[in-house]
Amino acid sequence: MSLKSITDVMAREYRIPASRMYQMIQFYHQLLAEDLKIDGKVRLPHLGVLKTKERKAREGTNPATGKKVYIKERKAVGFRPAKDLLRFINDLEKEEKE
């Protein structure tokens, strides 16, 4: 689902202009990103947890040229799904198979 489709669905549901809903979603994303940067962890109820992870510096290979490249230390974001989300997804998969 794209940001535009989410915006459109939510705008219709709450009967507000799509442009205003887009601003609200962007603000929500900004809050999540800032909290993730400060605390390193954001809980999204019933969905899961976003958490920063440290990636060590390492040597990699450029797949196009085969040359060795140095990759600097950095932070990455990981996602651990909530049990509610996993149960929901697995129940849907069971229904599709039947």
Results as ranks from 00 to 15, higher is better:
1 M>L: 01
1 M>N: 03
12 R>D: 15
13 E>D: 05
15 R>Y: 00
15 R>E: 12
15 R>D: 13
15 R>V: 06
16 I>K: 14
16 I>S: 09
16 I>P: 01
17 P>I: 08
18 A>C: 03
19 S>L: 13
21 M>Q: 10
22 Y>F: 05
24 M>C: 09
25 I>C: 04
26 Q>G: 02
27 F>I: 01
28 Y>K: 03
30 Q>P: 00
31 L>V: 13
32 L>D: 00
32 L>W: 00
32 L>E: 06
33 A>L: 09
33 A>S: 12
34 E>W: 01
36 L>K: 11
38 I>Y: 06
39 D>E: 15
42 V>Q: 02
43 R>S: 12
44 L>T: 10
44 L>N: 13
45 P>V: 12
46 H>C: 04
49 V>F: 06
52 T>C: 05
52 T>R: 10
52 T>M: 08
52 T>H: 03
53 K>I: 12
54 E>T: 13
56 K>G: 10
56 K>W: 03
57 A>R: 11
57 A>S: 14
58 R>P: 01
59 E>R: 14
59 E>H: 11
59 E>L: 11
60 G>I: 07
60 G>Q: 12
63 P>F: 07
67 K>N: 12
68 K>F: 08
71 I>E: 10
72 K>M: 04
74 R>F: 00
77 V>F: 12
78 G>T: 10
78 G>R: 02
80 R>A: 08
81 P>L: 02
82 A>L: 02
83 K>N: 11
84 D>I: 10
85 L>W: 11
86 L>K: 14
91 D>H: 09
91 D>Y: 05
92 L>V: 00
93 E>S: 10
94 K>D: 10
95 E>F: 07
98 E>C: 01
98 E>L: 02
98 E>Q: 05
